[in-house]
Structures are given as structure tokens and as C-alpha cells.
């Protein structure tokens, strides 16, 4: 562990008790995330990628192992506003306009009024939605709603952005556009991003580090350090480097998956 490490997981185990008996969601998961990294978690459903993200966010509690975020326990980290969480659905409140939706966490955290207004303006600019303050969620497309959700997660200046398949419900064209925007956002804000996905191109395109996971029990199969350049136009997906990394991810997924 270096000074640069922002999330450390060591030998995490997490079990869910279900009607059909216990399900091992995470088995001996160890991982370091460094400051400023863009880490993708990829794997088939049931591999524990979302569970791992939720454990980092203190939404699930591991049965054993240690997990620290910013040198604190996940609960403490949450209280210190260490992370913003973007869910698969935007989760905007239909009775609040866009500005008020972005303000919601700020109101809860007790920011003062002028500060709130300034922050809302700034983060809406970041996601390219200036001028939409007075619109209501139903007036926005799915992709725009998800951008509002990202703006909301950025509004209180957390260092870490946890994203759980944020573009999973969107069509591929919108997805490409949002991926490009997300990379820009990542460059300009220097956040650390943990990103759950089940799309190989998305993971390879976005990440500096790709964590390949496998189900039953949920575990890490491979961690790939990407050497793609920082500047990534969408066309980079046709280069040999990109295809090589995608190939390695695919092999990892195949190795970890027994198709019984």
C-alpha cells in the first residue's frame, strides 16, 4: 500500500443468506485502487462486482476481511463525503426540477444557500446541462437524466465516484457519447472512478485498470493495467492495443466462467 492508495480491500468475504441457502457474493477479494485511477469492474451477473462497489459505499457489510476508503472505514468515509454514488437508474424526483434534484444531497448535507446555488450551476456545466435548471425530469431523455445523476454525485466534491452500470439502460449511441463525456469529466476533475459494467468495450475504453471478476463464488480473476494513452478518441477502439486488451479481458471472463 502506497500513499497514493485510496481504496484498499484485503481478503473480503461476503455471504448473502437466501431462501435457497447462502450465496457467496465475494470470496477472498483483495484490491488496491490508487488516487486518480479509473477502475472498471467487469464480469457476468452474480460475480459480485456490484456487491463490491456497494461494500465500498457501506451499503453492504463484508463478513470478514478489511476494507478502507481514504484510510477510514466505509461508514466513516461516507460521513466524510468521500464518494458520490451513481446508480443504474438516475433516481431523479419527478416533483423537483433539475436544479432542485442536484441540490437534494446538498440540502441533506446542510450546505448554505448561496454555496448550493453556485455548486448546482458548476456541476450542471460539468455535465453540459447548463440551461436545464428549470426543466423537470420527464422533459429530459434517459441519457440526460443520467448526466443529472452524475452532476448530483459530483455536487459535494467527493474524491471518489462510484458508478454502478450507469449507462446500462441506454442505447449504444448515447452510451458512446456519455463514455466520451465521462472520460473528459474524469480528466478535468481528477476524480478516482470505480465503474461497474458488463460491456467489454466500455471497460477497455474507459479504464486505466480493469478488474475481471467471476461468479459462484464472486472473485477476482485478473487485474489488467491498461496502457492505452490518456487521450482516447472513440476510434481508439479499432487499434491493435485496444483489441489486445479486450482480448485479455475476454479470456479472463472465459477462464472464470464454467458454463455448466
Amino acid at each position: 500500500m502506497t500513499d497514493n492508495t485510496i481504496i484498499t480491500a484485503k481478503d473480503l468475504n461476503l455471504k448473502f443468506e437466501t431462501g435457497d441457502g447462502p450465496v457467496v457474493a465475494l470470496k477472498d477479494v483483495s484490491l488496491n485502487v490508487n488516487k486518480g485511477e479509473f477502475v472498471s469492474f467487469i464480469g457476468p451477473s452474480g460475480c459480485g462486482k456490484t456487491t463490491l462497489l456497494r461494500a465500498i459505499a457501506a451499503l453492504e457489510t463484508p463478513n470478514s476481511g478489511s476494507l478502507s476508503v481514504n484510510g477510514m472505514s466505509p461508514e466513516e468515509a461516507r460521513r466524510h463525503r468521500a464518494y458520490g454514488y451513481v446508480f443504474q437508474a438516475a433516481g431523479l424526483y419527478p416533483w423537483r426540477n433539475i436544479a432542485k434534484n442536484v441540490r437534494l444531497p446538498l440540502e441533506i448535507m446542510g450546505f448554505d444557500k448561496n454555496d448550493m446555488d453556485a455548486r448546482v450551476k458548476r456541476v450542471l456545466e460539468l455535465v453540459d446541462l447548463s440551461g436545464f435548471e428549470k426543466k423537470f425530469p420527464w422533459q429530459l431523455s434517459g441519457g440526460m437524466q443520467q448526466r443529472v445523476s452524475i452532476a448530483r454525485a459530483l455536487s459535494f466534491d467527493a474524491d471518489i465516484l462510484l458508478m454502478d452500470e450507469p449507462f446500462g439502460a441506454l442505447d449504444e449511441i448515447v452510451r458512446d457519447y456519455l463514455n466520451e463525456q465521462l472520460l473528459k469529466l474524469w480528466h478535468s476533475t481528477e476524480k478516482t472512478i470505480c465503474f461497474v459494467t458488463h460491456s467489454i468495450p466500455e471497460a477497455v475504453y474507459l479504464s486505466t485498470k480493469i478488474v475481471v471478476m467471476s461468479p459462484r463464488p464472486g472473485r477476482i480473476i485478473d487485474i489488467i493495467q491498461s496502457d492505452l494513452p490518456d487521450n482516447r478518441p472513440l476510434e481508439i477502439r479499432d487499434t491493435k492495443e485496444f483489441i489486445d486488451i479486450a482480448q485479455r479481458v475476454r479470456e479472463g471472463l472465459r477462464a472464470g466462467h464454467s458454463y455448466e
Partner: peptide, 16 residues
């Protein structure tokens, strides 16, 4: 569940 989890990530109190 998503809406409640979202509130939790902001450390919202039960009253909030």
C-alpha cells in the same frame, strides 16, 4: 430500494 440506498449514500437521517 434504490431511492433509499441513494439517501443512505448521502448519510440522510430517517427524518430527512
Amino acid at each position: 430500494l434504490l431511492e433509499i440506498d441513494q439517501m443512505k449514500t448521502w448519510s440522510a437521517s430517517r427524518f430527512q
